[in-house]
Simulated assay, not measured.
Amino acid sequence: MVAHVARLILAVVLVLAGACAPGRAVADGSSRHTLAIAGLERDYRLYTPVGVQAPAPLVVMLHGGFGSAEQAERTYGWNALADREGFVVAYPDGVGRAWNAGGCCGRPARDGVDDVGFVGAVVDDVAARLPVDRRRVFAAGMSNGGMMAYALACGSDVFAAIGPVAATQVSDCGSPRPTAVVAIHGEADQSVRADGAPGAGIARVDGPPVADVDAFWRRVDACDAPVVDVAPPVTTSAADCAEGRGVTLISVAGAGHQWPGSQPVREGADPPSGAVDATQTLWAFFAAHPAAG
């Protein structure tokens, strides 16, 4: 009996070891993973559609302040889109429900948490579990998560394109690698104001105007003059750039601090605008802008 139990335990150990071995695909659907980074145990969720083709594009979705990986997975509709379009999605968890985006926010900024390093490690861990198309690795983020997406573009060479929503750039960005950028912002956002004035709320976000951030990335990416399309309540400024990159700013009149087209995050939060499906819009941009080369 003891020998039988021992064999069963050994079989379970071998199965688990094989499932976690580099190069082996994780189970379809949602799974949770833990990494040890700089003395901290850090978690992320991973969504793998059934039958996804390898190598697969990867979207890293960064939750907003006070959010979480679970909340981001539930709220923004990425999994359903991944099923239709054939990509995988990683949802990292920030320390204390926030990210160190280079000047904001919360405990990660106070403690100097290396979130650029953590998110890069998440990408590497996903790539060790299943084949990832390294030319098609993208970062999307809401609010503080959007600021973190800018920090990733400023401080790493991992991402072909980023998609910040309801965010501004607060990180030092002295010598960024050219990166495609699509930003979505509500003109009535009082938490991260489009005009760059200090925002309401605990963080009192005080970054540059979103139009200035857009112009900054057009310079970095060596872009042509933008083409502006006005279809109220949405204004789109889109520029074609060197080596197939692009920089686009989508402004939504009347929209507050929210992810357009999503489910409400919590009671009392700004209701999401229905004028834009942010998730679909970001993915369409990502799909059209792989890394050069």
Rank of each mutant, 00 (worst) to 15 (best):
P164T: 00
P164V: 01
P164I: 00
P164Y: 03
V165L: 01
V165T: 05
A167N: 06
A167F: 05
T168L: 05
Q169A: 06
Q169G: 00
Q169Y: 00
V170G: 07
V170P: 02
V170A: 04
V170Y: 00
S171A: 15
D172Q: 11
D172P: 04
C173M: 05
C173G: 10
C173E: 02
G174R: 10
G174W: 01
G174M: 04
S175A: 15
S175C: 02
S175W: 01
S175P: 00
S175F: 00
P176I: 01
R177N: 12
R177Y: 01
R177T: 13
P178M: 03
P178A: 05
T179A: 13
A180F: 08
A180Q: 09
V181T: 10
V182N: 12
A183Q: 15
H185I: 14
G186N: 11
G186T: 11
G186D: 12
A188I: 13
A188W: 09
A188M: 09
A188E: 13
D189W: 07
D189S: 03
S191W: 14
V192Q: 06
V192A: 08
R193E: 08
A194Y: 09
A194V: 15
D195S: 09
D195T: 12
D195F: 09
G196P: 02
G196S: 08
A197L: 14
A197K: 14
P198H: 10
P198Q: 12
G199P: 02
G199I: 04
A200I: 10
A200C: 07
G201I: 06
G201K: 09
I202P: 15
I202Y: 15
A203K: 11
R204V: 14
V205Q: 08
V205K: 08
V205H: 06
V205E: 08
D206T: 15
D206E: 15
D206K: 14
D206A: 15
G207N: 05
G207F: 04
G207D: 04
G207M: 02
P208A: 14
P208G: 05
P208L: 11
P208E: 13
P209F: 02
P209A: 10
V210P: 05
A211R: 14
A211V: 14
A211Q: 12
D212V: 11
D212W: 01
D212K: 07
D212F: 03
V213L: 09
D214P: 02
F216T: 05
W217G: 04
R218C: 03
R219Y: 00
R219S: 10
V220D: 01
V220G: 01
V220Q: 02
D221F: 00
D221S: 00
D221I: 00
